[in-house]
């Protein structure tokens, strides 16, 4: 497993993490990386469901 490269530039540092994570996904069984992804995504879906927003307000936000 490669080590995560750090960087002073935030954009580059983010990209380094994207590469690091893609490397993890590539070199581990689907069941392993997906369990971590599931924690992240399921918590976001749970938050979204509890956040009540009307159709009108949502579409207004999307226009901006």
């Amino acid at each position: 497993m490669q080590k995560l490269k750090t960087d002073k530039d935030n954009k580059q540092e983010r990209m380094n993490f994207v590469e690091y994570w893609a490397d993890f996904v590539k070199n581990n069984p689907d069941e392993v990386w997906s369990r971590q992804q599931k924690l992240l995504i399921d918590s976001q879906i749970k938050n979204a469901k509890s956040f009540k927003i009307s159709r009108k307000d949502y579409l207004e936000i999307k226009k901006k």
Partner: peptide, 22 residues
């Protein structure tokens, strides 16, 4: 994940709520 031919990919991930929604 692995390719089962040129245009098919098998994915054994543990599906998250977004995947199930899709």
């Amino acid at each position: 994940m692995k390719f089962l031919g040129k245009n098919t990919i098998k994915l054994d991930k543990e599906l998250n709520e977004l995947d199930k929604f899709v």
